[in-house]
């Protein structure tokens, strides 16, 4: 029965997220996996990961790299006969994995997202140059060298400003985020 309780709790945990709400509706038809342009890269493609969630395989799901390959193309969700929205489920799983400190191997996407978000938190908007520089230095400085010609090309075409533009609403945004964290923590 302990196993059963574990099963229940993980699927409930997912169903309580934004994006995981429709997980019970899945009929395992597999059209999500068949439609996914990157299913071949995933350890567990969308249909399988839903089955694993419902089987209570929390560690396997949250430590996998699968959801980090999601391109947000939403083809799966548009074709799903049960309106499960696997794209949103993928982002909910990513968010859960981060929240619970799971480390993901095999893909640099989490590191890329982290530099993206820290750019937003610092400037109120994304500063692509800073974001990409941070990402390459954090993961693979050699790749940064390889990317130099592309960066230069973008820079010469006025598409890569070196100095971040600080959004006017940045201070307000920071205060709102701070308050929101307090609200969530208190409830």
């Amino acid at each position: 029965m302990v196993v059963f309780v574990g099963m229940k709790s993980f699927v409930n945990e997912v169903a309580a997220t934004l994006g995981g709400e429709h997980i019970y509706a899945c009929i395992q038809c597999g059209i999500c996996t068949a439609s996914c342009p990157v299913a071949g890269e995933m350890e567990y493609p969308p249909r399988k990961i839903i089955a694993m969630i419902r089987a209570g395989m929390r560690d396997e799901v949250l430590s996998s790299s699968s959801m980090w390959y999601c391109l947000s193309c939403h083809l799966c969700g548009c074709r799903c006969p049960r309106k499960v929205k696997p794209t949103e489920l993928a982002h909910a799983l990513e968010s859960l994995a981060v929240q619970h400190g799971y480390k993901v191997k095999k893909t640099y996407t989490p590191a890329m997202y982290r530099s993206f978000v820290s750019s937003i938190r610092a400037n109120g908007r994304v500063h692509e140059f800073g974001m990409m520089l941070k990402f390459y230095l954090m993961t693979n400085p050699l790749a940064a060298l390889k990317m130099l010609p592309l960066g230069l090309k973008l820079f010469l075409h006025r598409r890569m400003p070196l100095i971040p533009e600080r959004a006017k609403g940045k201070e307000d945004l920071s205060r709102i985020i701070q308050k929101f964290r307090e609200v969530i923590a208190s409830q």
Partner: peptide, 11 residues
């Protein structure tokens, strides 16, 4: 943004 939602969907 999508990356933000992937790291912290509520925020």
């Amino acid at each position: 943004s999508t990356p933000y939602g992937s790291l912290d969907e509520l925020e």
